[in-house]
Nucleic acid binder design. Structure first.
Lengths: 154, 154
DNA sequence: TTACTTGCAAATGATTTGCACGTAT
DNA sequence: ATACGTGCAAATCATTTGCAAGTAA
């Protein structure tokens, strides 16, 4: 659970600025365009993906990939972004302004489908309770083939 | 689903040898001790963990870490082992002779608790069906605090 | 004998870090 | 003016790979 669900851009921006101030960090153009792009594109990005996109969209900024990594890590630590891991293949980040959801990931084309299921969440809580385990977060990924790729394969 | 569930060591070993033969690969001491150690310790290991353990237990073998990586990858490709990912922090492998299960992972002490829930698996299949997605595997991890660590924290 | 395998060290690829310069406050 | 942030290049870390020597079949 975080405090950023369903926020529009201006509210996210305010939260971000507040958070920066609270930690004696500065509001820079680089940090701004990372947040803005994640919001506008409303998608999942690897740091590399986002770096390339920012180079295209804001060439005059001449952003460095290290800054992209630093900003994504900052957003994730502040709970304004979340990431899903692809093992050694890296991580993809998304803003945390959407309600909680999990992911289906196509092994062939990388398509990500989001889903949410209350019954599963409920069952997870029950399982945790039986094991005296206190859940702080969970990761659920269904891996396989999306409609398109499973048709190509067949 | 794989064919290794509930197998004892001798059967696993036979399967492994068969699999090696089928692929014109050789049965070596290094491959043997990796399989054997995973079986005997019945636990989850990073390649590094296992490498250190094998160095201790079989010092005369002088196994290299590259061989540990190669063997774990071979076992995983052959479906005799599975891995769970910890993001950038790496992967942990375990033998696939146990029935399918998922994991609870303690963020503080690293304890792994295994669990299995048919209702959740069923719900996952339904969700996939609705989205025309063909599941080949899934990853479900509940992260948080085990009984012991949540008592220490409180 | 003939491949395949191994350990080693070098290569790789993603991510992080040190540093001198730039910039928000 | 004073931190903090940035881009760059070098460093790091886990993992993979090339190669000459070793070993299973």
């Amino acid at each position: 659970m975080n405090n950023f669900e369903n926020l529009e851009y201006n509210s996210l921006l305010s939260s971000f600025k507040e958070l920066l101030k609270k930690n004696n960090l500065k509001f820079t153009k680089q940090r701004e365009v990372v947040l803005k792009t994640l919001y506008e594109k409303n998608d999942h990005f690897t740091p590399e993906d986002l770096y390339i996109l920012l180079k295209e969209d804001y060439p005059q900024l001449n952003i460095g990939i290290a800054t992209v990594y630093r900003t994504l890590n900052l957003l994730e630590e502040s709970l304004m972004a979340t990431s899903i891991s692809f093992g050694v293949a890296g991580k993809k980040f998304e803003l945390a302004n959407k309600p909680h959801h999990d992911h289906m990931i196509c092994k062939t084309c990388g398509l990500i489908i989001e889903f949410q299921n209350d019954k599963i969440e409920q069952l997870q809580l029950e399982i945790a309770k039986v094991n005296h385990f206190k859940i702080t977060s969970h990761l659920m990924q269904l891996r396989g083939l999306c409609k398109k790729c499973s048709q190509l394969t067949t």
